[in-house]
Nucleic acid binder design. Structure first.
Lengths: 343, 343
DNA sequence: TTGAAAGCGCTAACAT
DNA sequence: ATGTTAGCGCTTTCAA
């Protein structure tokens, strides 16, 4: 077994055919006509390339062209369906344009996000797409000076960075209005990371909806501070233990709602008879839960696609956008997890 | 805003310090002592590199060393939690060793898998990890002649390729025995892609268990042929329509069981009172389903880790394995989806 | 202890 | 219509 039998190079073809590497390179890059290389020569070269299974060494090409046809993707957790669906759409879109994706998992840690991005910097990437972890975006600005970059999900309104996200305000507003119109006035709200744009926008939506409905905001109902199962679990336990426990819970992510479900089950609360629940972000299993959960869903695939387009536009110098960011509307999938709250 | 301000190179440092690029390269690659470069020189060089934020251009390095510190990962669908959990473990493990991952989604199509691998071939990758799609592995053998490769999940027993998978036979055997001991003798079996190793092993486990229990195998109970929601849905509908419908269903994947759940719900079958169900592959939401589904679970993270190690061993020429493949035991998570079948 | 020079494979500016 | 040459940034052989 001959491992690493070195692949055919331009030089090899040159030796075989007697044409210079330049001529061959030109022909194989579709510039044969531009250089008025004779049809015969072109045919010979193309055939030889085919026969020898020639494919240009992308590393050499990258070095020469200062371009790698590679895009870095940094996400907090590829095993979270929210991110993996975005990643899928992104990969598809980029591949169509001839770009490959380097996948980096930041494990939800800003430090790793920064480290990762530094590693990527040496790789001659053509651009980078980040689902940021933290509430700080300075390192992203730094990158943006040298590399096209697009942000997904958690954007930074005061930083000049292209981004795609959802209209989190509207989604949360709608959900809260819905709950209140179902008679809920005591609504627990389990939030994600405070200081990140989607979270804060959702909080704003929640508050504005209550204000609109003339419901007094009980600050002790706004709890949490992390997008994970444990947060959902703990905060639900605590909310239920209150003197005046909420009749409805608004969970700010699929992970949070998972924890909430666990707590509700443990506490033998029925959904929606005892407690109603609405969640941000959907899930393939949502329809088959003990009680199907109503959710505000984001258009993940679309976010991925748009992010890819925004990045490719930057890379190619095409597209000229007035706005930095694009917000996509959320959808509201009503299922059976919300009850009429009879007073 | 200065876009693409070119990063510092060895040449730049050379100019600044007066040392040759060779010396600088040696020091920064930790070979200073080997070449007996004076401590002073080393310190100066290291400091300058740090101050100038120098990091070697990986493309140039790759071209010179014929090594990219990059690994290709080809999977059928990154948005499937089964694959994304594997991808996560893989990425983590590879990153620890200084390797990056190029992610390619084959969209469950052999053609795309082949195309994708061809694209990767030009990228000077150091190795490639594939969760193969089809029942054919010839193209993978071709690759293996020039590039270290490891297969996950669907392996090819008669091809000489390193692989990691689960003990699918045992998992299916256990599940079937369990069902039969609960009194089920009429067990529908919705399989995935016929001819792929995990599927066929599961079928073998299912058959052997029935034989062991002296239950006559009803061939019309073995249905399906694809790992998707629709297959689960259609086949369940058909199984339920039989003259003598099964009292239990064994779904060969999380996607198949999702479709089965949908069909059961539509047909107003209660789980497990009317129909029992067991599924291959778990899911974060499994515990919270209308009836929590008993499942045979694979050790996805472990598969990812081991695959990474097998590949890195090949790349580094370390590790000397007698066996081609490694099979990991499955776990059996019993939940409430199986009833005692009273005759 | 350090430097000069070659070369990884490709493309493009500059010949002719 | 095609070739020569230089150079992308790095590592390493050879020389001193």
């Amino acid at each position: 077994m001959t491992k690493k039998q070195s692949p055919v190079t331009l030089k090899d073809l040159s030796k075989e055919l007697g044409f210079s590497t330049s001529t061959i390179s030109r022909v194989l890059n579709g510039k044969g006509d531009d250089y008025r290389i004779s049809k015969d020569t072109q045919d010979i070269i193309k055939k030889a390339a085919q026969d020898n299974n020639f494919t240009p060494n992308q590393t050499a090409r990258g070095l020469r062209l200062q371009k790698s046809f590679t895009i870095g993707l940094v996400i907090p957790d590829i095993s979270n369906p929210f991110f993996s669906s975005i990643a899928r759409a992104l990969e598809n879109e980029c591949r169509k344009s001839g770009y490959s994706i380097i996948l980096c998992d930041s494990e939800d840690q800003t430090k790793l996000e920064i480290d990762t991005i530094n590693i990527l910097k040496n790789r001659n990437l053509d651009g980078i797409i980040v689902c940021p972890v933290g509430i700080q975006g300075k390192h992203l600005i730094d990158i943006s000076e040298t590399l096209p970059i697009v942000i997904i999900d958690r954007y930074f309104p005061n930083l000049k960075l292209k981004y795609v996200s959802s209209n989190n305000y509207q989604g949360a507003f709608d959900a809260t209005i819905y709950l209140s119109e179902k008679g809920h006035e005591n609504i627990g709200c389990i939030q994600g990371i405070v200081g990140t744009s989607p979270n804060d926008e959702r909080i704003r939506g929640y508050r504005d909806a209550l204000i609109k409905k003339n419901i007094k905001i009980d600050e002790s109902n706004i709890v949490g501070g992390n997008y994970d199962i444990q947060t959902g679990y703990i905060e639900t336990k605590l909310l239920l233990a209150k003197k005046n426990p909420p009749t409805a819970i608004f969970a700010f992510s699929n992970t949070i709602s998972l924890g909430a479900l666990k707590a509700l089950k443990e506490e033998k609360k029925r959904i929606p008879e005892d407690v109603s629940i609405i969640s941000f972000d959907d899930h393939p299993y949502s329809d088959f839960l003990e009680t199907p959960i109503s959710s505000i869903t984001q258009q993940n695939e679309l976010m991925g696609k748009i992010a890819a387009k925004l990045l490719l536009d930057q890379i190619n110098g095409t597209g000229n956008y007035e706005q930095d960011g694009i917000l996509l509307p959320t959808n509201f999938t009503k299922r059976k997890s919300v009850n009429n709250n009879i007073k």
